[in-house]
Amino acid sequence: MAAISLEGLFKSYGATPVVRGLSLEVRDGELVSLLGPSGCGKTTTLRMLAGLEHPDTGVIRIGGETVAGPGVRVPPERRGLGMVFQGYAVWPHRSVEENVAYPLSLRRMPKSEVATKVREALRQVRMEALATRRPHELSGGQLQRVALARALVASPRVLLLDEPLSNLDAALREELRAELAALRARLGTTLVFVTHDQGEALALSDRIAVMNQGVLEQVDAPETLYREPATPFVAGFVGGANVLTGEVREGAFHTAQSGTVFQLPADTLARPGPATLVVRPEDLTLGEQGTSLPLSARLFLGHAAEYRFPVDGTLLRVVAPPLEVRPGQTLKVQLRKARLFSVG
């Protein structure tokens, strides 16, 4: 177990910058997820942490020891980590046991001790019954468990998970997510988890680091992140909020292109001037008052319906109780709660 510190990491492939000045502290025993859309640099960050990539500049420390920095480059095999790869990377030429025993055999451990530890690791992921199977006989979920057991078996200081659930179907993902949560409560290892699925990140993490285009946008506990997004991007990516640009004038928000006017709720902190409006779909209401907008589509969700209105070239999404309305009809939309970000 160890704390991790990333300081001012830069990494580019050729002329394309992938990670741009990333700094992050992960406390001992904490689970931090790196969340962001594909291509945001989260996997590259994880690979730098693992030692599979070397940062162009910046320093990485694990448990106080500098593992990457000016003149320092500790190879992955000497960082004492466990990692689960996106495609699991279970070696097809070794049985389940042999896969899991590999990290121990490299540490020159006596055979009996290896066997005990392998059994224990397989028991933790509930795979002890399939120990002698070959990988091609296993399902995706089972391969995932083997990869996890292999990553855990040598009691790593830090466990790294690269989109471990993204290749599984929905039901299996749900199951493994719960198991992962239970496992982590038992182990207390420091965990860094890469995902593009905000639900996964919100459910599992102590803190979430949201990345966008190689930059860290916000690091906070899931609830804080959801309630108080620091940037429009975080609000849009984590909460699925509508994001509109425009200007605040006389207690109302005017969109930039079409000049559509939304009355702001009284408790909104609104400074006049250019601003970005962030509002969640459930914080909009349909009723007698508000801005008249033409409905372009209505999607039935079961407990509610999602209504879509074209505004400024994007779709304003509203989640409200199901109403008998048709596309083309004009409805009145009102803001109940909104956040404003001043521009510039």
């Binding site: 693992a50 030692g51 599979l52 190879p75 992955p76 095999e77 000497r78 960082r79 980590l81 466990g82 990692m83 790869f85 990377a89 070696w91 590999y102 990290p103 490299l106 540490r107 990869a147 292999r150 990553a151 040598a154 790294l160």
Partner: peptide, 8 residues
């Protein structure tokens, strides 16, 4: 890479 992480 998995072998490297495992300590090889």
């Amino acid at each position: 890479e998995a072998a490297r992480i495992s300590g090889a």
